[in-house]
Design a binder for these strands. Sequence first.
DNA 1: CATATTCTTATTGTATACAAAAAACTATCT
DNA 2: AGATAGTTTTTTGTATACAATAAGAATATG
Lengths: 216, 216
Amino acid sequence: MIMEELITRKSLSDQVHDHIKRMILSGELKGGERVPEASLSKLFGVSRTPLREALKKLSDYGLIYIKPRSYAEVVIISEEEAREIAEVRIDLEVLSAKLLSRKGNPESYKELREISQRCLELNETGDKASAFEMDSLFHLSIARNCGNSVLYDIFEKLDARIQLLRLNQQLDPASLKNYIKQHSLLISAMENREENLIESILTAHIMHDFHNSSSS
Amino acid sequence: MIMEELITRKSLSDQVHDHIKRMILSGELKGGERVPEASLSKLFGVSRTPLREALKKLSDYGLIYIKPRSYAEVVIISEEEAREIAEVRIDLEVLSAKLLSRKGNPESYKELREISQRCLELNETGDKASAFEMDSLFHLSIARNCGNSVLYDIFEKLDARIQLLRLNQQLDPASLKNYIKQHSLLISAMENREENLIESILTAHIMHDFHNSSSS
DNA sequence: CATATTCTTATTGTATACAAAAAACTATCT
DNA sequence: AGATAGTTTTTTGTATACAATAAGAATATG
């Protein structure tokens, strides 16, 4: 993974995309804020061409809204859309988890346990943002290893908006700890190939995330 | 829908995108064929800028593969990926159909019946390509009216590759007629809110499509 | 003959310039 | 004050030019 970044130096477009994405997901760029090509290209020291491509990609990920011929702004996810995202998310993740459990690859479970552990540790240190980032990696890991790359690609895109929704989340470490601990239950259910259990745990887990994300 | 196209004249990027998409889905541009910016921009009489944006979008839809810094070509969907697409497709469509049946909007069923009817008629006249196009509209209509636009957006993207897979399909009108007739069964199941039936009909329907698409 | 190696060409990545459209502002009028 | 019309400014859409890189061809080498 690190190797890849070393050998294939990214295009300016991608670098700028990553940078702006981080700005949005960190809250530095807030919902509704404009994302003008000119000023941002100046800020990054690149021309409008790669910046424009970066904006297009951000819009694909649902992080900005481009109003044609006018301007682009960071999206504000409505209550309704948050509900829709959670609905699709449950569906896709349940499928991923079931597929992964059918494969039954021990390596995958090991990876999941490690991520889950790091998630707990980050929460202990009070770094909520990083803990959530790690939580996303947990869910992405399931999709990545489930044996369906088309599914992964779809979910990876959806994940951007899932992370965006969490920005408003005001959760005390105790509740978050509770949330993270559900990961272990899910892993066990997958290992035992109990598909009904997988579905109920994951649904509850995601709904927990959803209710905290959209409350504020 | 027609209104929209009239009032918002599309950007060159989008026009070019639509044009190339049609070229690919009609078979005019075949899998593996290169899609160079220079020659195509010349062909359409536009500059490389909008053409480049069109290619980027086509790549988002999974219709071309862009090899960074080198060239782009029309994708060839592997057997493995075709399987993955079918797997995700079943999952998303079953969810859409269930959601639609829970809403129970009569208008939606009316629309589905009309599309299905036109689908049959097109097959009668021997216009297989148009019949398939109409079949895509049938499935897209379910997703559009299911009450989850996030789900629709995802499925709409997947549909491009579903259509691409059908290019190799060699199906006699009788088998196709059989396939299209399953639409009515699905509509009934949705109207009666029999979710298990919805799932089994749709799964069989899509697998039918899948097997015929990936056989050649 | 197969395999490196160099050279040429094709193709993309990025910067820049200009035109067109929309947004923001200002002055005016009711 | 609020709406309206006209003007200015901002911002995007597109064309074009140049640089950098990869592909393909020609040439050398074992």
